[in-house]
Computed example of a mutant assay.
Amino acid sequence: MLRWYVDGRQFHSVSRSQPDGTSWNNMASHSGYFLLLNLAIGGAFPDAIAGFTTPTSATVPGYSMLVDYVAVWTTGTGGTNPTTTTTTGSGWNACGEIQAEQATSRSGGTIESTSDTGGGQDVGKLKNGDWLRFPAVRFDSTTAIRFTARAASGAGGSVSGLVEVRLGGPTATPVGSFAIANTGGWQSWRTVPANMGGVTGTQDVYLTFTSGQPSEYVSINWIKFS
């Protein structure tokens, strides 16, 4: 079975039983595939459509196509989670640790080395209005009702803010959040859980940051859902 998704929503599928056996084997029984992203303005030039003169005045060249990510998932065996290969961007299993520095796009913060357990990097010193985007997070059929973040803060004593999860865009209504203030330093890490509305399927997840003060107030190492 092949399934196609746009922004986490399936729009087409083809099963083995639909084409003839030869066509299916020609498609599936080899290694090496290519993804083609095509921005077309038409195909019947010139004057190949009965009753029409083409191109028309509405045929305008010069448009562009913006693609944030392309991901290919191959189902594992023996009940394992799907494995993921990507050309740009990625996809994540919601139940695993999603590293903050792997966000495919972000507004604000600084990627830095972390002294947290396991080493690696974090996104540091996030402030009001900043966000991290994680496209194609796979919640599958399990309803996630909690998210957990590994967070630290060296903010001043009067500075605090929210860490929020939103689906689809950075201005969507949050499905869950927690408040955080100074934890003892920008590398003083805590695992902070928060309840959220039930989420299933494959989602574009935004981690957003809201505060009444303009100062940086939180660093994030990873998030995960359960």
Rank of each mutant, 00 (worst) to 15 (best):
S141A: 11
T200M: 04
Y33G: 08
T148I: 15
L66M: 06
L132A: 04
L2Q: 11
Q121H: 14
T87M: 03
V137F: 01
A100L: 11
R106L: 10
G79C: 01
G201A: 09
V70W: 07
G78S: 04
Y217S: 08
A179G: 14
A194V: 04
F11W: 14
S226A: 15
G198M: 07
E97K: 13
N195Y: 14
R138L: 06
L126Y: 00
T77M: 04
R9S: 12
S23T: 15
N25D: 15
L162K: 14
T208E: 07
G169Y: 01
T54A: 03
N26R: 15
V60Q: 10
S105C: 00
P61Y: 08
Y206S: 00
V218L: 08
V218E: 02
G78I: 03
G197F: 12
G62H: 09
Q10D: 08
V175W: 03
S113E: 12
P170Y: 03
G109P: 07
L37T: 00
L36T: 12
S158L: 13
Q213H: 10
G89I: 07
F11L: 08
S17V: 15
V70C: 09
G89W: 06
S23R: 13
V205C: 06
R133I: 06
R133D: 00
F225Q: 01
G109Y: 05
T143W: 01
R150Y: 04
F225V: 04
D116C: 10
E164W: 06
D122E: 13
R190P: 04
A103Q: 09
N128I: 01
G197H: 08
A71L: 07
T54F: 07
G21A: 14
L36Q: 15
E164K: 13
T183Y: 07
T54N: 02
A40I: 11
G8D: 03
Q187C: 11
E101T: 02
K127V: 07
I98P: 00
G32E: 01
I223Y: 06
V218I: 12
T53G: 14
W189L: 05
D68L: 05
Y69Q: 11
P135K: 07
S31V: 12
S29W: 13
T54E: 08
